[in-house]
Write a protein that binds this DNA or RNA. Structure first.
Lengths: 142, 142
DNA sequence: CTAAGGGTTCGAGCGCGCTCTAAGTCAAGG
DNA sequence: CCTTGACTTAGAGCGCGCTCGAACCCTTAG
């Protein structure tokens, strides 16, 4: 497989794949007689996993540490497991943080929606029902 | 409140707060007779909300759009709500992505743990019980 | 009076992760 | 034979979000 196809398959650009090789995140790829990289399909698994690490915000520095352990073979498994476990904890924390922020956002949005609803109700409701609806209790500040 | 205290209270550095003012994310702050910024406590709410937007990965560009709408007053509420709703959807998608990756990580980690378990079992189990345990079915590739 | 410890401005610099340019090589199709 | 287009390299450049340095100004405590 040449770099263009690998790019297509992984979603990384050829530029990025070469960059990853340069910095050591991908092993030096075999070249054909004309010097072009010729990838083995097995690299797909690794690149896809790198994609996961990247998607979860692992810095390249740390991917490099993981890649280096991997290259050193089976007796680094405990260290790799440890590294991933730490990362997993960070991901969990991140999810929790985002979920927390999501509540704030929902609240704020509900506040805006509440304003519209109140305005509509104020316009359309008969005078005796013109009172603060339940949604009006928060989120005016911003 | 001077910038140092605001920094302490919000978790943003004084440098960052000045930077935010420079780019228009924070309104120009009143200065005292000696030219030092003197903040009103009300700015805290806004800065904390900015912190939420930042924590959820909103780019500064977009915070600026939101801030600009806010400055323009109450008749931009629908647009602000729309902007936040879009952002909220991205946050939800991001949480989903992270959760998905989390499963992959858990799996991989379980694979490493499985290796250790298997090695232990292989070392300690009597020969007739030396067979693949349940945890051995995946995640060797990396 | 002096020194410490805040604050001010402007602009340069940095760390990250790419992303692109330039100049060149090579293989296949018309 | 010639063009097209994908590939090669080394290295420069970029967008983001700060972060810091230099040189200076105020206020306050000892």
């Amino acid at each position: 497989m040449k770099i263009g196809e690998l790019a297509k398959r992984t979603g990384f650009s050829a530029h990025t794949l070469r960059y990853y090789e340069r910095i050591g995140l991908l092993a030096y790829a075999d070249r054909d007689r004309s010097g072009q990289r010729d990838y083995d399909a097995s690299v797909l698994t690794w690149i896809e996993f790198l994609g996961r690490l990247k998607a979860t915000g692992m810095p390249i520095r740390e991917m490099l540490r993981y890649a280096a352990l991997r290259e050193r073979g089976a007796d680094t498994e405990a260290q790799r497991r440890e590294l991933l476990a730490q990362h997993r904890d960070r991901v969990r924390a991140r999810i929790a943080e985002l979920s927390d922020c999501l509540l704030v956002l929902d609240n704020k949005i509900a506040g805006y929606a509440g304003t519209e609803t109140r305005m509509k109700e104020y316009d359309t409701a008969p005078p005796e029902r013109r009172q603060k609806p339940a949604g009006a209790r928060r989120a005016y500040a911003c």
